[in-house]
Amino acid sequence: MSGADTAWVMVATALVLFMTLPGLALFYGGLVRARNVLSVFMQCFAVACLMSLLWLLFGYSMAFGSGDGFWGGLGKFALIGITPDDLRGTIPEICFFAFQMTFAIITPALILGAFVERINFAFVLSFCALWLLAVYAPVTHWIWGGGMMADGGIFGAVGTKDFAGGIVVHETAALAALLLAVMVGPRAKRHTPPHAPVLVAIGAGMLWVGWFGFNGGSQLAADGGAAMAITVTHISAAAASLSWALWERIKFGKSSLIGLVTGTIAGLASITPASGYVGPLEALLIGAIAGILCQEAVILLRDRLKIDDSLDVFAVHGVGGIFGTIMIAALGHGAWIAQLGALIMVGVYTIVLSWIIAKLVGLVFPMRVSSEDENSGLDLAAHGERAYDHTS
Rank of each mutant, 00 (worst) to 15 (best):
M51C: 14
M51R: 11
M51F: 12
M51V: 14
S52K: 03
S52G: 07
S52C: 07
S52H: 12
L54S: 05
L54V: 04
W55N: 13
L56Y: 09
L57M: 15
F58P: 06
F58R: 05
G59C: 06
G59K: 05
S61C: 05
S61V: 05
S61T: 09
A63E: 02
A63M: 07
F64E: 00
F64Y: 06
F64G: 00
G65P: 00
G65V: 02
S66V: 13
S66D: 15
S66F: 09
G67T: 01
D68T: 01
D68C: 00
D68I: 00
G69F: 08
G69V: 07
G69N: 12
F70C: 14
F70A: 14
W71A: 15
W71M: 14
W71R: 14
G72W: 06
G73C: 04
G73H: 03
K76Q: 15
K76F: 13
F77H: 13
F77G: 09
A78M: 09
A78R: 05
A78S: 12
L79A: 12
I82D: 10
T83L: 02
P84M: 01
P84Q: 06
D85T: 10
D85I: 04
D85H: 12
D86W: 03
D86P: 05
D86R: 05
D86L: 05
T90S: 15
T90R: 14
T90D: 15
I91K: 09
P92H: 00
E93F: 11
E93I: 04
C95P: 13
C95W: 15
F96Y: 13
F97C: 02
F97K: 01
F97W: 09
A98C: 10
F99C: 09
Q100P: 10
Q100I: 05
T102V: 06
T102C: 06
F103P: 00
F103E: 01
A104F: 07
I105M: 15
I105W: 10
T107L: 09
P108S: 13
P108F: 10
L110Y: 07
L110E: 05
I111R: 02
A114D: 00
F115P: 03
V116F: 08
E117T: 05
E117Y: 02
E117L: 07
E117G: 06
R118A: 04
I119H: 12
A122P: 10
A122Q: 15
F123W: 04
L125F: 04
S126Y: 01
F127T: 07
F127K: 02
F127M: 03
